[in-house]
Design a protein around this nucleic acid. Sequence first.
DNA 1: TCCATATTTCCATGATCGTTGAAATATTGA
DNA 2: TCAATATTTCAACGATCATGGAAATATGGA
Lengths: 120, 120
Amino acid sequence: MDIKTALLAFSALSQEGRLEVFRLLVKAGPDGLAAGLIAERAGRAPNTLSAQLNLLQQAGLIESRREGRSIIYSACFDKVSDLIVYLMEDCCAGEPCVASSVQAAAERALCCAPSSSVTS
Amino acid sequence: MDIKTALLAFSALSQEGRLEVFRLLVKAGPDGLAAGLIAERAGRAPNTLSAQLNLLQQAGLIESRREGRSIIYSACFDKVSDLIVYLMEDCCAGEPCVASSVQAAAERALCCAPSSSVTS
DNA sequence: TCCATATTTCCATGATCGTTGAAATATTGA
DNA sequence: TCAATATTTCAACGATCATGGAAATATGGA
């Protein structure tokens, strides 16, 4: 991940409404949510939400697919991984204290997860 | 880390100038850099830089101390750790694919680092 | 083809942000 | 105390951003 991409991602996550939408989509998992449903749950106008979804998508953090009349948005977990790794490697190169606490958190997350879904 | 704090951190890192300054301070390590030196290296006016440093500090990503006539800024590595862990745990809860790739990166970072500086 | 549904695009407005010149503050040394 | 250095604060400006109303686009069903 280059600095331009990271900047886009941070920018997309730096606004309350967008971060909220992103977390909603993360919780929804790979199946995602229809744009209308997101607007309803977030309590915002559909066009406002459309702009927010657009920005998150441009940043590569979410993706969309059409299903009938609805457009389903879902989180791009690999891009979030990239962002995390960028923060750790590029921003914090040579600082083991960061790496070690992150490693501990990753292990906590993995030990209570189904091993089948680990795709490295 | 709560969502408000994360939002501040993302916001602080979402602008090219500030991200650049932050990376400069990360590379400088715990010793940090004087404000004037940062301005010189970043090629920006001292007062512009002061505003950027201020924002990064409010977000908790950097800290300052006075040394004589200079004010030395340095990165808060523990806060970056917090942000990374927040992204992984709170934003990506239940997604082992994120945790496993992050764990791999953390291990790479740790294996080539002096073990003495690991403070978990 | 026509209508209803789902979402986006266009446009305008108010709000926030980034930058800079000028003035103010803090520290050091004489 | 005075002058020099280092940095910040203040005020103002131009630029960018977020939002929502209205119109446009795309799909599905009759």
